[in-house]
Each structure stands twice: as C-alpha cells, then as structure tokens.
Amino acid sequence: MIELRDLTKIYHTGEIDVHALRGVSLSVARGEFLSVVGPSGSGKSTLFNILGGLTPPTSGTIHIDGRDLLKMSDAERTDLRKKTVGFVFQKYNLLPTLTAEDNIAIARDIAGNKVEHEPQFEQILTLLGIRERMHHKPRALSGGEQQRVAIARSLVNHPAILLADEPTGNLDTENSTAVLEILRDLNTRLGQTILMITHNPEAAAYGHRMVRMRDGRIVE
C-alpha cells in the first residue's frame, strides 16, 4: 500500500538547509494500523505531509497504492488528496461556518462526488456516534465530537489511507480513548489503512505496529 525508500526532505529557510527527513524507508500493508511516534522535530509531520501529497519529497521513492508520488505534478497530488488520502488533524480543522453535515459534504464536492453521501456511510456515522449532531456547527460541538466529524469527513470519499496527525492531541483522556477506539474499529471492521502520528505511547499502542522516529530517521 505504502512504500518509502530513502526518503529525504530538505527545507530551505533563508540560507540554512533544514534536513527534516534523512533517508526514511518504510512499508505499510493494506489494512494495517501503523503508529509513528517520536519527539517534536523528529520528522513525523514532514512524513505526514509528504504522504498526504501536501509537499513533495526532495529525493527517494514513494509509492502509494501503486502510484509514484515523486513523479506527480501539483495537480496530480491535489487529485491524490481528493481520492486516495484522508486527513485527520490535531486541531480538527473543520470549517467553522458550515454544519457538521456540510463539512462532510464539502469533502465530497471537492472530490467531484454528489454532495449526498451513500446510505452505507450512515453506518460510519453511527459508529462515530455523531448522527444526531450533524446539523450543528463546530462551535456547538465538543472537541471529541469535532474530531469524530473530522474522521467522518476524512472517510467520506473512501480513501485508501487515513492519515491522522496527533488526532488525540487536543482531547481529554475520555475523548482520546473514544477516538482511538473508533480508529481501531474502522481498521478492524472496514479494513481501513491508518497511519497515525503521535507522541503519546498509549495512543501508539492502538496500532498493529509502531515505528519510532528521531532526527529525520526511523530508529526502530
């Protein structure tokens, strides 16, 4: 599903080159729930951004679902974000002016799908426990509910991979546990491939496998 070989990423900030990734190699199988842990500045978020097609790598090879990301144009990476990858962010990142339902609908609109989701998607909304909260705007939802709406939005276009960047970083323990349970459920019941970045070992333990990053490398 995901194949990375000797991936590097250098950010040029003024006259200084920042080596965010220094040769990362990693394989993630279809249906796997992988946790990536590491301290701040270890390169987790850069890896997340590259896998999500938000930024190109500097060198190396990267294949997602058989597609070579390095050869992709900006437009193709935009297309990847529409159809292949779903994002869940630490800060939820819902559009504040839209209801939960419309936040999900706009992801379908962007992907060129009909705005109304398929009937099967109701199952996911039930699993997430937000069916009754769909007509509320983010400001009327708790952090846990917002994150569950964000998860629903990330799944509505059936992405091959769900990328979650510190999905419990802004949540209390109870809501963190609920969100992690949901991610595990999605993985178990729907076979959703999940790559979760976290600095929390307890959260990381929900994955099938954990890789640890430090200084732009995978160390274990």
Binding site: R81, N93, I106, I110
Partner: peptide, 16 residues
Amino acid sequence: TREIGVLKALGASPGY
C-alpha cells in the same frame, strides 16, 4: 488562511 489550508488538504484545486 487556515480554512483555505483545510480545503487544499481535502483536495481543493486553486481554481476551486
């Protein structure tokens, strides 16, 4: 700015 970032992360093109 942040909302535009969200739209782009969801796959919104510059034209969108």
